[in-house]
Structures are given as C-alpha cells and as structure tokens.
Write a protein that binds this DNA or RNA. Structure first.
Length: 229
DNA sequence: GCGACAG
DNA sequence: ATCTTGTCGC
C-alpha cells in the first residue's frame, strides 16, 4: 500500500505525521516520480520559495514570492505561519518546511510556472530534496538552489560567473556547482521537477544577474526572515 | 566505530 | 535556520 495518493493535476499527496524512518521510506518511494527532463510551458510567472523560523523555531514561516519573467517584477507574495512539527534532520528538511510552504502556495492567486527553491533538488541521498519533493507534490516545474552542499563530490569550478562543475554521486550527475558571481562562493543547482539540469542552470544564471542567489529566492528570503508582520 | 550533514 | 556590530574589500 503506497503512502501517497495522486491528484487530478499531476501532483501527489501524503501524510506528514511521520517518524524519520517512515519519512525516509516515503522519499524513496517518491523519487521515481521526479521528471528530470524539460516539461515547461511558457514562463510568465516564476516564484521564489523560502522558509524562516520564529519563537525559537516553534513557528515556521513560509514565503512564496511570484515575479514576472523575464523582467522579474514583484507580482505577489504569500506568507504562512504554522507551528513547527518536525525537527531539523539533514536529509529530511522537506518534512520540516514543506507543510508551511503548501499553506503559502494555497494563498496565492496565481499559479507559478516555475518554483525556485532554497535548498537541494535531487542532489540528495535519496534524490528527494525539498525542491524535488515540492515539485512532485504540486506537479509544478521546480529547481533547487542550495547555498552549501548536502551530498555529492565536486571540484571547485572556475572563478568566473557562469563557470561550473558537476556534482557527482557515484557515477551519477546529481547537480552542478555553479558560479553566479565572479569570485563569490558558488551555489549548488539541481533538478527539482520537470526541468533538466542544463535548463535549470541557464534559468538560475538569468535570475541572478547581480547577486549570488536568484532574485525570486532573495525576495522570499527577505520576507521570510524579517522579524515583523 | 568515525565523520558528514540543505535550512 | 537563528543569535548579532562592525569591518574589510571591490
């Protein structure tokens, strides 16, 4: 008996009250659902997704910021604050953050054409990082941009913006260490859902013309970590 | 048994 | 993630 159910729009749904062991099993069963090729429609609205915490971690605050593409003009922000129900466990981040993110997504009046997520996509021990998990759940195209490495081996890429090197797990390419700013620490880009790695890197570079992180994520991050509202 | 370990 | 001011460098 599967632990998830399909929805009518390509996404899936499952319980969140799980033990770490059950969560890992669920990730393994969801991993095959990730579509690693481009299945994108025209990009009109892209969204940045990020999460912050308040009250010593007791409250989870998720923000989804929708911007126009390719102009990246802020269009709508959705925020949700829900009680934190899962601890931070490396590899199980989605069980701590996604419930709040889904709440924020539900408050959006527009459906994003692509999600830029703060964290890994398939660059994960079971190929089910937050970006991949969120993509499979919503059925929406998604990509992951991590500020640091969770798993995988790599060699430091060149110093110029646009330089990159493969993030490897055994003999599989699970992501790309990409320099978005010359001389600045690179980011870890990986497939989330319905976007191939090449396209993901191209979009991340286009969305981060001046700063290390993509503009949609910067905006969501700012709204998620400001201690007011 | 000993490290590594997204946010 | 969060606690936190100023400071070094392009």
């Amino acid at each position: 008996m599967v632990a998830w159910v399909e929805t009518d729009v390509g996404g899936v749904s499952h319980h969140w009250d799980l033990t770490p062991a059950q969560a890992r099993d669920l990730q393994a069963s969801l991993a095959p659902r990730v579509i690693r090729e481009d299945r994108l429609g025209p990009l009109r609205h892209v969204a940045g997704v990020d999460v912050g915490f308040e009250d010593e971690g007791r409250l989870t605050r998720a923000v989804v910021s929708v911007l126009t593409w390719p102009d990246m003009v802020p269009l709508e922000d959705a925020l949700a604050r829900v009680p934190t129900v899962f601890p931070y466990v490396p590899g199980l981040l989605s069980f701590r953050e996604i419930p709040a993110v889904l709440e924020a997504l539900a408050r959006l009046s527009v459906t994003p054409d692509l999600l830029f997520c703060d964290g890994q996509g398939i660059a994960h021990p079971r190929r089910m990082g937050v970006a991949a998990h969120l993509g499979v759940l919503t059925g929406l195209p998604a990509l992951g941009v991590g500020k640091s490495r969770l798993t995988g081996r790599f060699e430091m890429p060149g110093e110029q913006r646009g330089d990159g090197s493969p993030l490897m797990a055994d003999d599989e390419v699970i992501g790309r260490v990409l320099r978005t700013r010359t001389g600045v620490k690179p980011v870890f880009v990986s497939i989330g859902h319905r976007v191939c790695l090449e396209t993901a890197c191209r979009l991340v570079l286009e969305a981060a013309p001046r700063y290390r992180l993509p503009e949609p994520i910067r905006r969501a991050d700012r709204l998620a970590s400001r201690r007011d509202r």
